[in-house]
Design a protein around this nucleic acid. Sequence first.
DNA 1: CGAAAAATTCTTGTCGACAAACTTAATGCA
DNA 2: TGCATTAAGTTTGTCGACAAGAATTTTTCG
Lengths: 235, 235
Amino acid sequence: MTETDTADWSDRKRGAGAKLVYDTLRDEILDLVLAPGEPVDEAGLAERFSMSRTPVREALVRLAGEGLVTMLPNRSTVVAQIDYPNLSAFFDALTLMYRVTTRLAAEFHTPADLAAIRLRQEVFSRAVLAGDTAAMITCNRDFHAAIAEAGRNSYYLQLFLRLLDEGRRILRLYYYPRFEARLPHPYILEHEAIIAAVEARDIDLCDRLAREHADQIVRQIQEMIASDRRQHIAL
Amino acid sequence: MTETDTADWSDRKRGAGAKLVYDTLRDEILDLVLAPGEPVDEAGLAERFSMSRTPVREALVRLAGEGLVTMLPNRSTVVAQIDYPNLSAFFDALTLMYRVTTRLAAEFHTPADLAAIRLRQEVFSRAVLAGDTAAMITCNRDFHAAIAEAGRNSYYLQLFLRLLDEGRRILRLYYYPRFEARLPHPYILEHEAIIAAVEARDIDLCDRLAREHADQIVRQIQEMIASDRRQHIAL
DNA sequence: CGAAAAATTCTTGTCGACAAACTTAATGCA
DNA sequence: TGCATTAAGTTTGTCGACAAGAATTTTTCG
């Protein structure tokens, strides 16, 4: 990611232009490289990626479809705001998706799924050990996404991925600055318990563990937001 | 809808082109005017709506984002197939969304929401009385969408709408041909019971009624598909 | 006659340009 | 000076055109 400014995409395959812009912008939005509310200029992006405005526009339309940017008619496109008023709805849906995807994973997982899940847990643990908060956020996402994929329900998976990505922005805002790397990090242990419950195909236990895991994450985020609010008021 | 072929959209506002194509195609896909797998030609649509390919393309990209069409790279765009292998996942998600949206409606509904829900139920009843199956399908959708809106959770609402729309295609395929208008149609009574439970803010009852309602619909669709399979095998 | 190869036709992906709508700067008037 | 109006400058939405890739037809050779 250190060469984004100087990279040269002059030789790219037909049809890859829009995808490149889409992937890049998506990452930058979720990593808060592009701040919520920041305008996204089509001509500027076209110049940056050295292509015409047409594929850039296609990428923006797709991002708008996922709610990551807002296209104001005849006006600029802006990075989507974080919807604080609907935060409780977000937490509600996130918790439910944690639960149902883990339940379904217990029901439908294959050995290959379990291996993929364990791999993600491995990577997540390394991120925790290294104290790399940014990696922790994405690896935690990948871990639960792997579980959701084992559940074999594309509708839940899609909603879950969207919620996890939206959460990535919130975590970057609030979680990142105040993380302390005390080991063993409780999330590692909770993940291990979830893996065991999935492998044992214990649906009720999966539901309970996922719910507790989700509740803890939600509680932590809410506390961080609250303390952040207090700080802002104090200043 | 009788003038789609001869209509003249030569004078339309800037920015309305893509939306017009999007709305029209969306309706035609969900109403099975465009059959699953049917190719969608950009140039043809451009000529039909008397506009350039650019806004047509934007509409197709948006439709692809919702999974209503599939854009094959460097090849034609086709209307999305109905995903029979994942039908059980569809029913699972549909049932869950029926339940959670009705629960949340019991919790968060306002008098205005109740009025909107009752209005939808009124329209639905008229469709049943008239024996208008096509109208029944959309009115049933609108009824449950109104309940979901009262639940104030945009994530659930969006997924629910997508599932209901996908179900619209399946119902058109299987339900439409073999409907018999016996009154009082059980769905009307079930809807009435759900409205009463929402108004009473009885969350557990809402959950139970929604689950039974969903199970009945799912069972009916599965039976129709099964009997249809038998017919096809017999032939 | 049949199959591989070549040429043609057709559709998509990308481009540069232009006009409409919005934003900002400049001007005029009370 | 302050505010409304006008003019200039951006940025978007749409268009026609062209080139790349795929599908189809025609040609060529065994």
